[in-house]
Computed example of a mutant assay.
Amino acid sequence: MGDQEADIARIKESARALKRIRDTFAERANPAEGYGVGDLGSQKILDAFDTFGSNWKIHRRQLTEELERLHGITKGAAESYETLDHELAEALRSTDDRQPKTSGK
């Protein structure tokens, strides 16, 4: 088995970034919401945004769910690596404590 190293800080930051992205997706609605024909200049443009908004709502929900799932995976991975690292360090310290002390000669 090859050498493996986990950058726990980077995995944690990835989890936080995925959560921020997920939260942003969850908050965003139709980009033209609140605007009228006078603001956008045309009923066609307003209708296009309404159609986009309806489709976006469906896709946004799917993307939000996937981002939430990925956030959970990366957060869980970071926690697992951290726990494993801590347990391994404790086991090694325990083994070191049981080793006889040498006189240094």
Rank of each mutant, 00 (worst) to 15 (best):
L84K: 07
R16L: 03
A32Y: 04
L92V: 14
T95S: 13
M1W: 01
S80L: 09
I45M: 10
K75Q: 11
D39H: 13
L88N: 13
H86E: 12
T24L: 07
F52K: 03
A91G: 08
K44T: 13
I11D: 01
D23C: 02
E82T: 04
S80K: 11
D23L: 05
A29T: 09
L70C: 07
S94V: 02
G104T: 11
V37K: 15
R93N: 15
E66T: 09
R10F: 02
Y35L: 15
E13K: 15
H59Y: 13
R22T: 00
D3Q: 07
E65H: 04
P100Y: 10
S94A: 13
I58N: 09
I8V: 12
E5H: 14
G36Q: 06
T102D: 12
R10L: 11
E13D: 13
G53S: 09
I21H: 02
F52R: 03
G36Y: 04
H71F: 09
K75D: 13
L67P: 03
H71S: 02
T51N: 11
E5G: 05
W56D: 11
S94C: 04
G104M: 08
E66C: 03
D7F: 02
L46P: 09
A6D: 06
E66Y: 04
G76T: 03
I45A: 14
Q99E: 10
F49T: 04
I45E: 05
S94P: 01
M1L: 05
S14R: 10
G38N: 13
A15K: 05
S14P: 00
A77L: 14
G41A: 09
W56V: 03
I11C: 01
D7H: 05
R20E: 14
E5R: 14
D96Q: 15
H71N: 09
K101C: 03
R16D: 12
H86R: 15
F49Y: 15
R10C: 03
I73W: 00
E82P: 00
E66W: 04
S94D: 15
A29L: 08
A26D: 13
E65D: 15
L18E: 01
E33A: 15
K101M: 12
I11W: 01
S94I: 02
Q43G: 04
A89M: 11
H86I: 11
A29C: 05
E5M: 09
